[in-house]
Design a protein around this nucleic acid. Structure first.
Length: 463
RNA sequence: GGCGGCGUGGCCGAGUGGUUAGGCAGGGGCAUGCAAAGCCCCGUACUCCGGUUAGAAUCCGGACUCCGCCUCCA
């Protein structure tokens, strides 16, 4: 049984599915007004890993993740740059998918765009107004949080114990400082959709509740996102579903922050690193390894040192892949537990790692066991047990593959000249002409190759 | 003020009562023509103060630090 921490209950619980064998999963996606940053990279990796693991276990996962393509930040950027909102949105959505592709995050099965669901949002807001759960003031339509009895469930405290930030001037017209905008009336030169209660654009919290229920239906299984969405975003989505008397997500998952030093990385602190920049100078797999090496609910520290550490750890896996000529997995391809049949130590590995991952995605312990298995496979091979060694190595690749991490090194084809140097060196070595062999090795090294001798002769690879 | 979380060896990062998590870095060794990769060995850590226990990093109480959320945020 798959189990996962549920934010509302504050404990690890069975991940129940509404329909047998099928998991409906919604992950709050990005607002596309800037390059994706490391925090985006983490949440997409975390839930991509979850999705892949659930799929490995045989669930048919319907993974939905939205693109918020209308929002104040988009409008501000468009006005600042003298362009249109849709231009800003499409520019950064393209950047988003480019980055997702590079870190190996599989495309969601559905990608709803907020602007395509405005009509449904308008109907929902109309129904709220009809029941006086929402009210109109000068700048928009607001949701009356006091109408939802258990408002504060996700925040972990009741509404009356929340404190409105005194530094933010609350609108005098709002019934409560916690009431949130369902709809914002448009100002001149802003994008506008018509509605019976006044032309304008939808509020963020309304977008996600409409899209998740619209695609996954009432009482869908799992709703995920970054911990900072827990309150108020997810609380407000939930409040709207409650008010609409529609069963909402049955299970809530939240991932931890990316830290920079001791502070949370965030837009407001201005200490973010763009994912696009990281990928310019790092093997994208290193970031995935960094993410799965710690627990998804813990904060992770991303720095040049921790990234370099992960890259070196990755080299150990790549060496294994080279030694055993392992297949690669990842990208849009999902591995399932029925794809390979193992026996002996390989089977034991898949079983024990599976137990760890089934229990709230304990990837750090799983990674520990996998690295142990790397040593074991090398030892078995050294001790003349090639078949069992190869099985174990393959199991390592399969499990890492199930988590979306391809165990392989980038392929670099030697040129004809390089190959000539390699065979010349083999000749020198068989003639025991060590000086010449060393000279040829230096030559290859100067051409950027790492030179290793093996039973089959000189082998070269890129670092 | 309310709510939640953290404090582990040089670094990252697991671990809820007893045996080395794991990775990276460092030291020693095996192997190798010499290397590289690989393998073996090594550091014996757990914020502080009390307490419970035969035994605690792990449970309880307290203190301190740091971080986060409380109408921008993944």
């Amino acid at each position: 049984m798959l189990r996962l921490y549920d934010t509302i209950h504050g404990e690890v619980r069975d991940l129940a599915t509404r329909d047998p064998g099928k998991l409906s999963m919604y992950v709050c996606g990005p607002t596309v007004y800037d390059l994706p940053h490391l925090g985006h990279g983490r949440f997409t990796l975390v839930w991509d890993v979850a999705r892949r693991w659930f799929s490995f276990r045989g669930l048919d996962v319907r993974y939905v993740s939205n693109i918020t393509d209308i929002d104040d930040n988009i409008i501000n950027r468009a006005q600042r740059e003298g362009t249109t909102e849709s231009q800003v949105a499409s520019t950064y959505e393209n950047e988003w998918w480019e980055a997702m592709s590079r870190i190996g995050v599989a495309r969601p099965r559905d990608v709803p765009h907020a602007t395509q669901y405005v009509a449904d949002m308008v109907s929902l807001i109309e129904s709220f107004l009809a029941e006086d759960v929402a009210y109109v003031i000068s700048d928009g339509v607001y949701f009356d949080t006091s109408c939802v009895a258990d408002y504060g469930l996700l925040a972990g405290q009741p509404l009356d114990s929340l404190r409105a930030d005194p530094t933010i001037e609350a609108s005098q017209e709002k019934r409560s400082p916690f009431d949130f905008a369902l709809w914002k009336f448009s100002k001149p030169n802003e994008p506008v959709w018509s509605a019976s209660f006044g032309d304008g654009r939808p509020g963020w919290h309304t977008e996600c509740v409409v899209m998740s229920l619209g695609l996954l239906g009432d009482g869908f299984d799992l709703h995920c996102g970054g911990l900072d969405l827990k309150f108020p975003h997810h609380e407000n989505e939930r409040a709207q579903a409650q008010a609409a008397r529609r069963p909402f997500a049955q299970h809530w998952g939240h991932n931890g922050w990316v830290m920079v030093g001791t502070e949370k990385m965030s837009k407001s602190l201005g200490n973010f690193t763009s994912l696009t920049d990281l990928l310019e100078r790092t093997d994208a797999r290193a970031y995935r390894l960094l993410v799965i090496r710690s627990h998804y609910r813990s904060p992770i520290e991303v720095s040049p040192a921790t990234v370099a550490d992960a890259e070196r750890a990755l080299a150990r896996l790549d060496t294994l892949a080279r030694r055993f000529e392992l297949p690669t997995f990842g990208g849009e391809q999902f591995v399932t537990q029925n794809d390979y049949v193992f026996s002996g130590r390989a089977k034991d590995l898949v079983t024990s790692v599976g137990v760890l991952l089934d229990e709230d995605l304990n990837t750090p312990l799983a990674v520990g066991e996998l690295f142990d298995a790397v040593s074991s496979a090398n030892t078995l091979a050294d001790e003349g047990e090639p078949v069992e060694a190869a099985q174990l190595a393959l199991a390592v690749a399969v499990v890492f593959g199930a988590l979306g991490l391809a165990v392989h090194s980038a392929v670099h084809e030697p040129t004809r000249d390089d190959q000539a140097l390699v065979s010349a060196r083999d000749d020198a070595r068989s003639a025991q002409n060590w000086a010449e062999a060393d000279r040829l090795r230096d030559e290859l090294v100067s051409r950027g190759w790492i030179v290793e001798d093996s039973a089959g002769g000189t082998r070269i690879r890129r670092g």
